[in-house]
């Protein structure tokens, strides 16, 4: 599976605890990027935006936005350093954040 798909992932912080979350196919917010929807076309991103807007109103999350990501071998990875750090944790403390809690998804800094 060497096929690479590029698209966008909707992310936000959970309001009550600040945890970084991603919007999934079932319309839930999940802590793992692996569970996220990778929107490949404008229609899909618009749907994510609408959902995020509702969930901001419902006080589930705060500060939602889309970021660029790619799917490699079925697994999603952020394209830019900033979002990679959000999906994994600090690069200077591999013992903290999602990378330490087992919610980091398939790509870790150690392997990068």
């Amino acid at each position: 599976m060497s096929e690479i798909e590029k698209g966008q992932v909707m992310t936000a912080n959970r309001l009550r605890d600040g945890e970084v979350v991603f919007l999934t196919r079932s319309g839930e917010w999940n802590e793992r990027i692996d569970e996220a929807v990778l929107a490949l076309e404008p229609q899909a991103t618009a749907a994510l935006e609408a959902r995020a807007k509702d969930d901001v109103k419902a006080t589930l999350v705060t500060g939602p936005y889309l970021f660029d990501a790619e799917r490699v071998g079925g697994k999603i990875r952020a394209l830019h350093m900033r979002e990679r750090i959000r999906t994994l944790g600090p690069t200077v403390r591999l013992d903290l954040g999602k990378q330490a809690e087992g919610t980091a998804g398939a790509f870790a800094f150690k392997e990068a």
């Binding site: 912080n13 309001l15 009550r16 605890d17 600040g18 945890e19 970084v20 901001v56 109103k57 419902a58 006080t59 705060t62 500060g63 900033r82 750090i85 959000r86 944790g89 600090p90 954040g97």
Partner: peptide
């Protein structure tokens, strides 16, 4: 804020004046 009575735009200055930011991880 958690109940939705305050919007994030209204709450942000209040939490900032109590030292609370929203950063990358939390």
């Amino acid at each position: 804020r958690l109940s939705g009575a305050l919007t994030e735009d209204e709450f942000r200055p209040l939490r900032l004046m109590n030292g609370l930011y929203l950063q990358l991880h939390a």
